[in-house]
Each structure stands twice: as C-alpha cells, then as structure tokens.
Simulated scan of single mutants.
Amino acid sequence: MTEPAIEPVEEHWDARVKALLKAELKRKGVTYAQLVEKLAAVGVKETEPNIRNKLARGKFTAVFFVQCLTAIGCHNIALDN
C-alpha cells in the first residue's frame, strides 16, 4: 500500500494565498481587467496578462497581495475556511 504524496509546504501556502486573493476578487465581482484599472488608481502599473500569470502560478509578493486587496477595497480577510 502506498502512502499519498505529501504536497510540499511552500506549494500549500502558495495555493492558499492564491485562493484567498481569487476569492476576494470574486466576492467583489472584480475581473482581471478591472483589477488593472483599480491598481492603476492606487499607483500600481500592471497588465492583465501579468496578473493572470501571477494568479495562475500562485507566486506573487506580499506587496502585490496587499496592493490588490487595497485596490479592490478589501479591508478585512478571513484566513480560515
């Protein structure tokens, strides 16, 4: 009997942060195109393909995460499911 593969710890956290941001975007009804505009309004230059790639990979900085949350008007975030 083989044991299930254990997901590397870093990948688990990457996936969790990616899911948190995507959930907040969905809750606020914000598309990637709208996020580009909202980020620009707070002084952050991003393109839609860059955002799409960052979220697809789940690899982005804490700064980008907070910039996105600020841009969409998210002031609180629940870390537990």
Rank of each mutant, 00 (worst) to 15 (best):
A33T: 15
V36K: 05
A40F: 09
K38H: 11
A56P: 01
A71F: 09
L35V: 09
A40W: 02
F60V: 02
Y32P: 03
N53R: 14
F60P: 04
R57Q: 13
F65A: 04
G43T: 11
T47L: 05
Q67L: 00
R16Y: 15
T31P: 03
H12L: 06
A62V: 14
A33I: 12
N50E: 13
D14G: 01
Y32K: 00
E37A: 11
D14V: 05
L25D: 02
N53E: 10
C68K: 01
R16V: 13
F65H: 01
V36Q: 06
F65P: 00
K26T: 14
L21P: 01
T70A: 07
L69Q: 07
E48K: 08
R52A: 09
V66Y: 13
L20S: 07
T61W: 02
T61P: 03
L21M: 10
K54S: 05
N50F: 09
R27Y: 04
A71C: 08
F60R: 00
R57Y: 11
L25P: 09
F65V: 00
V17M: 00
K59A: 07
F65K: 00
T31L: 07
K54E: 06
A56V: 07
E48M: 05
Y32N: 01
V66F: 15
D14Y: 10
T47R: 01
W13I: 14
T61I: 05
F65M: 07
A56R: 10
E46N: 01
N50T: 14
Q34T: 12
I72R: 02
A23Y: 08
L55F: 15
K54H: 14
G29T: 11
V42M: 05
R57T: 13
F64N: 00
A19W: 04
R27P: 00
A15V: 08
V30R: 01
L35S: 04
R27M: 04
T47N: 07
T31V: 09
Q67R: 02
H12Q: 06
F65R: 00
D14N: 13
F65W: 08
A56G: 11
R52G: 07
Q34Y: 15
R16L: 14
T31R: 03
Q34N: 10
E48Q: 14
L55R: 00
L21S: 02
E48S: 03
W13L: 11
Q34G: 14
R57K: 10
T61M: 03
L35I: 11
R27D: 12
R27H: 09
N53D: 09
T61Y: 06
G43H: 11
A33R: 11
V44A: 03
K22W: 01
V66H: 05
T61K: 06
A15H: 13
